[in-house]
């Protein structure tokens, strides 16, 4: 099933959160993802690395069916979340996305207050019984997003007025507020300065206690810092997947080695 025999022994199948099996993605005629199979563990940070256009973001977006919003995109193969195929016709993609939250490359707070930004998901999904309940959910989410102390005095100020790093943490808090089981992050730090990046990375590490986190990143240092598992994509193929330490110190595939040493990319 795997290219590398070492992986099979290391993966403990008991806490597999997402299992992708022979996934193909097409954009019109373009074959963007070729035959990708990967098993993502619970309570782990998994990093997707690879050169631009290698399909890592596309694959990330298949995990919560965000690709459904693109007309010309077709997905084949199975992706199991807790053993259930998310591409089964009976699965409601809207419900799925509440379970598999997503944080985007550019901070995208809604043009609403900080409070309303975080309360957006819980309100849509009817997660609170009362105003006090909702207040509690918002506070918890903001605390988890490590931004509560900075915004607690101005919860009703517009979210767009925050700095870039604060906005991204607000977006993480917003994603956390719907109590997802998996958190997908598409280059969450690419628009941030090093200090804000550090704060977000710290946050990702904390989030690992409760969630399975999948992060797409261009920065190999970042992948090395925050992730326990790393997958290397190249030209739509999953080249290598394994423990981060192993990928960065002792890659099996020559292409992985070329990439992490800076020869392709």
């Amino acid at each position: 099933m795997y290219d590398s025999p070492t992986l099979e022994t290391k993966l403990n199948t008991k806490n597999i959160k997402i299992a992708a099996d022979n996934v193909q993605v097409y954009y019109g005629e373009t074959h963007a993802i070729k035959d990708v199979s990967v098993q993502i563990q619970d309570k782990t940070v998994t990093a997707f690395i690879g050169p631009s256009g290698c399909g890592k973001s596309t694959f990330l977006r298949t995990l919560n069916r965000m690709n459904d919003t693109i007309d010309i995109c077709r997905v084949q193969g199975n992706i199991l979340l807790d053993g259930e195929n998310i591409y089964d016709p009976r699965v409601d993609p809207v419900q799925l996305r509440a379970k598999v939250g997503m944080v985007f490359q550019k901070p995208n707070p809604f043009p609403k207050s900080i409070y309303d930004n975080v309360a957006y998901g819980p309100r849509i999904h009817g997660m609170s019984k009362s105003k006090a309940d909702l207040d509690q959910i918002v506070e918890t989410a903001l605390r988890r997003g490590a931004i509560w102390d900075e915004v607690k005095d101005r919860l009703h100020a517009p979210g767009t007025g925050l700095s870039g790093g604060q906005q991204q943490r607000l977006c993480i808090a917003r994603a956390v507020a719907t109590e997802p089981e998996v958190l997908l992050m598409d280059e969450p730090c690419s628009a941030l300065d090093p200090i804000a990046t550090g704060q977000v990375e710290e946050l990702i590490d904390e989030l690992r206690e409760d969630y399975s986190v999948v992060i797409v990143t261009h920065s190999m240092q970042q992948a090395a810092r925050v992730s326990q598992k790393t997958a290397f994509f190249h030209l739509g193929n999953l080249v290598e997947y394994g423990d981060t330490s192993q990928i960065f110190t002792n890659p099996v595939d020559p292409r992985t080695e070329s990439y992490i040493t800076g020869r392709i990319g």
């Binding site: 809207v94 996305r97 939250g101 985007f104 809604f110 998901g121």
Partner: peptide
């Protein structure tokens, strides 16, 4: 588009997204 993605990514339907995010913006 990032605002729409943000809302859809939180599990909102298309019309919820339009009503609560796109139109206010």
């Amino acid at each position: 588009q990032s605002l729409r993605d943000g809302s859809l990514g939180l599990g909102a339907t298309k019309s919820e997204t339009i009503k609560q995010v796109v139109l206010p913006a």
